[in-house]
Amino acid sequence: MSHSFSSYLEHFGLHQRPFSLTPDPEFLFWSDAARGAYAMLQYGLATRSPITLLTGEIGAGKTVLLQHFIEEAEDDDALSIALVTNTRPNTRDILQWLLPELTKSDLSEEGKFLKVQEFLIQEYNEGRRVLLVIDEAQNLSPEALEELRMLTNINLGKEEVLQLFLIGQPELRDHVRRPDLVQFAQRVAANYHLPYMKPETVAHYIAHRLKIAGGRSSIFSKQAAMLVYEATGGVPRLINQLCDMSLTYAFAQNEAVVKRATVQSVLDDGIFFAPVQRA
């Protein structure tokens, strides 16, 4: 195709790419599942749940939902939020996530724990509670999860001074159910699993993103949207990828609408790579 990649924007009357792969809260689509997950996060925060779990398959939309939640929560002056997004297997850097200055400290593990306890109590005395949000939490080792549980034991009377939000792939739930983590599991007071989209939801999702980007919600035909669902299994990240390619193909063919045949052409050319989905 000789046309430049971004030229389809003008062709379809769009002011930005509707199907960018980068999570963007502006495009957040409030499906029933997204509303349920968001309500659970709000419930966990409001009830001061020690540990809240949000799980979902890769590309199911956890990150954009979390970004929106944090943007809203940051308006609360009585809340201090620490966000961790670079977890690695067997990580033991839990304490310095809450107090970065501990990276330069030569204190013992016990000394660092006491420092964190002092910090949490100080935040509480100043009218703030602390929320530690860990994305990709399925990468945490059992030792790290146990260390997190010990942190949630720091409280003043009946008041929780630290809450945990753990966001991750489905195996996070399996980790938490391990026999040696029964005490951790008992502290999980709120949890939600974000599923992939159903066929009718995919059609609404595509129309929503087109509208947010300034275009007509009918740029994709119903038949095209159905094929997008069949090819992606309802995974938002894959939907975005296939729809973006389909818009490029439709533009190159000077079509005003993305038809089922357009999407099929993308699939036939083999440029859309869809990983095998879990059952």
Rank of each mutant, 00 (worst) to 15 (best):
G13L: 08
L14C: 03
L21S: 06
F27A: 11
L28T: 04
A34F: 14
R35V: 13
G36E: 13
A39R: 15
Y43P: 02
L53M: 10
E57M: 13
I58Q: 14
K62P: 09
H68I: 10
F69G: 00
F69D: 03
I70R: 04
I70Y: 05
D75E: 13
D77M: 13
I81V: 07
L83R: 01
T91L: 07
Q96V: 12
Q96L: 14
W97A: 04
L99Y: 00
L99T: 08
P100T: 11
L102F: 11
S108T: 14
E109T: 14
E110M: 10
G111S: 10
L120W: 02
Q122M: 11
Y124C: 00
R128Q: 13
R129T: 13
R129V: 07
L132P: 01
V133Q: 00
Q138W: 02
E146G: 01
L156Y: 02
E159P: 04
E160S: 15
L162D: 02
Q163T: 00
P179V: 00
D180F: 03
A185E: 08
V188G: 02
N191H: 13
Y196V: 02
K198L: 15
A203W: 11
A203C: 04
I206Q: 06
G215I: 00
R216N: 03
I219Q: 01
F220L: 09
K222W: 15
M226Y: 15
L227P: 05
L227D: 01
Y229W: 05
E230S: 04
A231G: 05
V235L: 14
L238H: 05
I239Y: 04
N240G: 07
N240S: 09
C243I: 06
D244W: 09
M245T: 02
L247Q: 03
L247R: 04
A256H: 06
T262W: 05
Q264A: 14
D269A: 10
F272I: 05
F272K: 09
P275I: 09
V276Q: 15
Q277H: 11
